[in-house]
């Protein structure tokens, strides 16, 4: 499946096994997007949260 980058419009390849909640990175502009929803033929993106000061393990 393919989708379009919300920042720069580039085409992004989407791995078949990607899950809702995973992060997709645009190879052209480096923008990060969270998979908001996924169906057989359609994928919806939303801008990913930026790394917070409290991120980690």
């Amino acid at each position: 499946m393919k989708t379009q980058c919300q920042e720069c419009g580039a085409e992004i390849n989407v791995p078949d096994d990607i899950m809702v909640g995973e992060i997709l990175t645009c190879p052209d502009c480096g923008g990060n997007f969270e998979i908001a929803s996924k169906s057989e033929d359609k994928i919806e993106l939303k801008p990913a949260e930026t790394i917070g000061e409290d991120w980690g393990q």
Binding site: M19, V20, G21, E22, I23, E34, A48, E49
Partner: peptide
């Protein structure tokens, strides 16, 4: 329960 699905959350669910 996740806020960003990493390798670990996917591995646990799978």
């Amino acid at each position: 329960l996740y806020d960003k699905v990493r390798f670990e959350e996917k591995a646990l669910y799978d």
